[in-house]
Each structure stands twice: as C-alpha cells, then as structure tokens.
Design a binder for these strands. Sequence first.
DNA 1: AAGAGGCCCTGATAGC
DNA 2: TGCTATCAGGGCCTCT
Length: 287
Amino acid sequence: MPELPEVEIVKQSLSKNIKFKKIKKVTVRNRNLRIKVSSNFETCLENKNIVKITRFSKYIIIHLSNKSFCIVHLGMSGTIHLIKNNQKKKLTNLSFYHSLTLPKKHNHIEIKFENCIIIYNDPRRFGFFELIKNQEELNKRFSKFGPEPFSNLFSLSYIRKYFKNKKKDIKSFLLDQKFVSGIGNIYASEILFLCQINPQKKAHRLNKEECRKIIYYSKLVLNKAIKFGGSTIKDFKNISGNSGLFQNEFKVYQRENLKCLKYRCPGKINKKNILNRSTFFCNICQK
DNA sequence: AAGAGGCCCTGATAGC
DNA sequence: TGCTATCAGGGCCTCT
C-alpha cells in the first residue's frame, strides 16, 4: 500500500487522535509479521504515554514517554484503524468493532487507550512493529537510508555524485531507499513522467537539467499526493476509514494503453516490468 | 561495490 | 464451480 504520502496521512491522523494519550493495554494476536513482534512488546508499551508521532520515509515513529520508540512499517498491505469508544457504544450487540466496516481477518495488533483503540490489520504481513531503545539506536536504524526528497541533502550535487558510474536504470534508483527515502512504485512512475525521463534510462546518462527535474518533481508529486490524502489503489484508507484521492490525479500509473496526457503528445502509455515492478511511461515524450 | 534475482505472505482477479 | 496462474503499493537477503 503505502508510500511516503500515505504514511504521512496515517501519521497525521494518529497524531490527531492518540498524541499525549496513555497506552492502557496492548494485544498481539499474531507475532509473525515481517519482523517478529518481540516478546516484551506489550510490556514495553503498556502504561507509557505517547509524546509525539513523527515519520521518516515510509516509517511511522511513535515517541514514548520513557524516551524509547516504536517504529511501524505498513509493508504492502498494512492498515491502521481507529475505533472511538462512542462508536462502540452505538452497537447494540457486544461483538465490538468487528461489526463495523473493519476487516475481520488479519487484525494482528490492538493498542487500547482511554477513549479509543487502534488496530493494525495486515493480510500479507509485510509490515512490522519494532521497538527502539533510545535516540542513538533510532539514528542507527535509519543511518543507511538516503535523504527524503524534501531534504536539502537531496541536492543536485548529491544526485550527480551518486549517479556517477551507476549503470542501473533511473527507475530502480528512485525505488532504492539508500539513494532516496520514501518513493515507491506508484510515485516513481509519476515523477519520471513529469520529468519526461524514460524509466529505463541509465542513471549515469542523466544530465544536470534532468537531475534538477528529479528533485523538483519528486517534491511536487509527493506534496500534491499528501494534499490529496494519499492514493487509494485497493484499500488504502486513513485511520478513520476515508479514501485518498490522488489516484484520480495519476498521469501514467495504471493507464496502460491510454493516451499520453502531455499536451499534444501523440504517445500511449506503456507498461513494462523493471526489477519485477510494473512501470508506466510514455515512450514518446519520456526520453 | 554494484546489480540481478529470489523471497517473505495473502487475496483479488483472469483465464480455462 | 473450481482449479491455476499472475499480479499487488516493500524491502531484505544472497549470489555473482
């Protein structure tokens, strides 16, 4: 599911609803996520306050009152649902939240607060919850990640230096979190379309102007997606159950065989597998 | 070091 | 209806 914009939306709604609240009770139904949920997970969270919630790349970072952290990655299919107590009260039977629109299966983790519960649901179990002891460990955890597109570190000189002698295609680099953090498969295609760069172009062949465009359009696309509440392809929702709208703005993603949307371009959108991920582009205006 | 490929897992959909 | 194959928004690991 989630790339940087979707994770940002989840972070914002979590922040709105559970910041400053105390964790009352944690229930883990299935520990076998991508990384096994540690055996002390519940006790490390229970009775701690949420100090704040931040995000780096596609990771949600929950800051706990004892200076430790819990980082959450949603993988491909992870979603977080918020159930408010008053919603529960409205139900006439006692089947709790399951009678709401919430998926019944794959609710792996529940975190209860005074007035609400958040539920982590993840059919494919590619996501994970990981405890981090302190700030130093947190820094270490993300030390091998490249900068976010919004960062000043994602600069022309950084990119040009990085791409020197790199013979892999540019699409693969946009997906490579060591190069830049937070871009996933959808937004990589969208960014390259706006740059008018063919996704199969070798990184070391990009000129200065093209590198500038990558910086500019990476920021633009991600910011716009956040404004639109993220993209809902299959089932992405913010934690209150609302869909994003950015999928309506896609220029190439899932537009195979449709007309290129660039003004006066006679091209059609092609679909091709790059690194086993479907990639969409116009083979006329993207060079 | 860099790049290609496999793999973790379930579910939706397409084709027979 | 029911089988099988393919594909999904991610990222880690291994091999060359």
